[in-house]
Write a protein that binds this DNA or RNA. Structure first.
Lengths: 291, 291
DNA sequence: CCAATTTACGGCCCTCGTAAGCATT
DNA sequence: AATGCTTACGAGGGCCGTAAATTGG
C-alpha cells in the first residue's frame, strides 16, 4: 500500500533530481530511497522519474504527481497541526446559547473578549428562550449557555458572568417617570407585566421578593424586550434588568429601585464537556467576574 | 511517522464508532487496529476517540481530523488515478506550436477531433513563425508542431497532416481575377509577394518550381495572411495555400492553378518524446491522412 | 575510469494474529 | 455474565544499511 513516506521520498528526489542528494536530505542511504521510489512506481504502474546516468528527469506523469504529492503531504501536516490546535482549544468552534436580552449585556462583553483572545475559534451564537438554555446544554446542542440560574441545575457547572440591578420601567408619560428612585410602596397598585414563572423563575422571585405585596399582574410574556415594548405602549409597568436600558426606547423611562435586587447571569457548561475551547471560554468568563 | 494506513484505520473506526466492525471492514483483527489508532493519537498528541464500554465517541478534535483524513485519503486516491491516466495519455497537457495560417486548415480539424476524443487533455496552442517550429519541438517548448516540411529535419518524426493545392491570389480588380484557372505563362510579368526562403523553404520551392521563369519579387513577408492582405492592397500577386481562402477577404480573388503543386502540412514530434498524450495526437493525425 | 543507481544480503525492528486481561453494563 | 477494547507474546515480514554489481558517459 502506498505510504506517506514514499511520497516524501519521491518529493525529495523530484526536487533534487538526484538520488544521492535526496537521500542525504532525508538522512537515509540511497538504496532504501531507490527501492521506495521504485516501489511507488510499481504500485502506481507509472514511471515517474527517468533515470539517466548523469541526471534524472521527471516524466510528465511524475511532474503532475509531484504537485499532488506535495499537496497531500502539506494537507497531512496541516491536519496534524489543526488537530493539536483543536485539542488545545486554540482552534475550533463553540456554540453558545443565550437568552435574548443578554445580547445587551454579557454577550457583547464576553464574545468581544473571547474573539480577540482566540480568533481561530468560530463562535456560533444562538438566541434562545431562557427555559431552553439548560436543556440545550445538557443535550449537547450548545457547548455553553448564558442565562439566569435555571433553578433545577441538573449537573450543570456555572460561572457568574454578569451582575446587575433590577430597575423599574414605566411609560415616559407616567407620573413616576421622573422619580430618582422608587420604593415598593410607590409601585403598589400599578399593573405589572412579568415573564412567566417557568421561564425565568429566578428573576421573577427577585421581583416579587422586592415588592412587599403581590402585584396586580396584567399579562405575561417571555421576552424582556417585549415587556419593555409593551410598557412603552402604555399597557403597564415592569421591573427588568437594568441593562435593558440599552434598548434606548424613547417611549419608556428606566427608574432605579431603592435597595434594588441584583440578578446574575451565569455561564452554564456541562462539567463533562469535551470541547477544549470551553476552557478558554470559562477562563474569560472568570476574568469578567463581577466585583 | 504518521502513515496513510493509520488514517484509513482511524476513518474506519470513526465511521463505524466500533473497533470490532471497523476491523472486520478492514480485514484485520482488532488489536492491530487499536494499536494503530492509539499510535496515531500518540504521535498527534491528541485524543481522537473516547472509548466507553459500549460505545465510542469522537472528540471534537477527532471529528475535525476525520474530515481532514478523509480528504487526504481521497486526494491520494485521486492522485494515483491521475498519474495512471496521465501515463496513458487520457489526462494531461499538450503544447502544440503551429504556423499561423494553419489556423485556417489543419489546426481546427486536428484539435476538434482530438478534443472530442480526449476531453481531459488540455491543449495549449501556440502560434509561431514557421522557422521556429522545429526548434521549438527539439528544445521541448512544444510537444508537437504543425508546419511545412522544415527541410533540415534533425531527427524529427513527422506525420502527413493536411495536403492542399496552391492557388493564385490577385486583387479583385485584377485582369486575371475572374479567370477559371491559370498557367505559369499568364502570371509571367506579375510582381510577386513571397515569404522568405529561410522561413518556408518547401513552400517557396513549390511556387518557384511551378512558375517556369523566376518571377519579379516585389517584397517578402513572413506570414501568409500578411501576403494575402498586401495583395488586397493592390501591391502585387502571390501564390499561397488554397486554405487561405478562408480569410474571406473581399479585396482579393483566389484563382486555381493548372496542375497546381500540392503542399503538405506535417505534424512534427520528437521521436523520444515522453508525453503519453502524444501517441493519441499522432493517432488522430494518422486518421486524418490525406487520400 | 568514474559517477550514480540498482541489486544482494544480513540484522533488526515493527506489525500482525492468537490469547489473556480488564472494564463496563 | 457478556461485550468490547487493550495488553502480552511469539512468529513472520519488511526495511534499513553495508557491500557488490551494473549502467552509462
Amino acid at each position: 500500500m502506498i505510504d506517506i513516506r514514499q511520497l516524501r521520498y519521491f518529493v525529495a528526489v523530484a526536487e533534487t533530481l538526484h538520488f544521492g542528494r535526496a537521500a542525504e536530505r532525508l538522512h537515509v542511504t540511497q538504496p532504501p530511497l531507490s527501492r521506495q521510489v521504485a516501489a511507488l512506481e510499481q504500485e502506481l504502474g507509472v514511471r515517474l522519474i527517468e533515470r539517466h546516468s548523469r541526471r534524472a528527469v521527471l516524466t510528465p506523469a511524475g511532474a503532475r504527481f509531484l504537485e499532488d504529492a506535495r499537496q497531500i503531504i502539506a494537507a497531512l501536516d496541516r491536519a496534524c497541526r489543526d488537530a493539536r490546535a483543536w485539542q488545545s482549544g486554540d482552534l475550533g468552534e463553540l456554540t453558545i446559547g443565550f437568552m435574548m436580552h443578554a445580547a445587551y449585556s454579557s454577550v457583547p462583553l464576553l464574545t468581544r473578549r473571547f474573539a480577540t483572545a482566540h480568533p481561530d475559534v468560530t463562535l456560533h451564537l444562538r438566541e434562545t428562550l431562557p427555559m431552553m438554555l439548560a436543556d440545550g446544554v445538557m443535550e449537547g446542542r450548545f457547548d455553553a449557555a448564558i442565562g439566569f440560574d435555571p433553578g433545577t441545575r441538573r449537573g450543570l457547572a456555572t460561572s457568574p458572568l454578569y451582575r446587575e440591578p433590577l430597575a423599574a420601567v414605566v411609560p415616559s408619560d407616567h407620573h413616576l417617570a421622573s422619580a430618582s428612585a422608587l420604593t415598593p410602596d410607590q409601585l403598589a397598585g400599578e399593573r405589572f407585566i412579568l415573564s412567566p414563572a417557568d421561564v425565568t423563575p429566578t428573576l421573577r422571585r427577585a421581583i416579587l421578593g422586592w415588592l412587599a405585596a403581590p402585584p396586580a399582574i396584567l399579562l405575561e410574556t417571555q421576552l424582556q424586550q417585549t415587556i419593555v415594548s409593551l410598557v412603552g405602549e402604555g399597557l403597564g409597568v415592569a421591573i427588568v434588568p437594568e441593562s435593558l436600558r440599552r434598548l434606548a426606547m424613547t417611549s419608556v423611562r428606566f427608574v432605579p429601585l431603592i435597595d434594588a435586587p441584583m440578578v446574575e447571569q451565569l455561564l452554564m457548561v456541562r462539567p463533562d464537556a469535551r470541547n477544549p475551547a470551553l476552557t478558554h471560554l470559562r477562563a474569560i468568563a472568570d476574568s469578567l467576574q463581577p466585583a
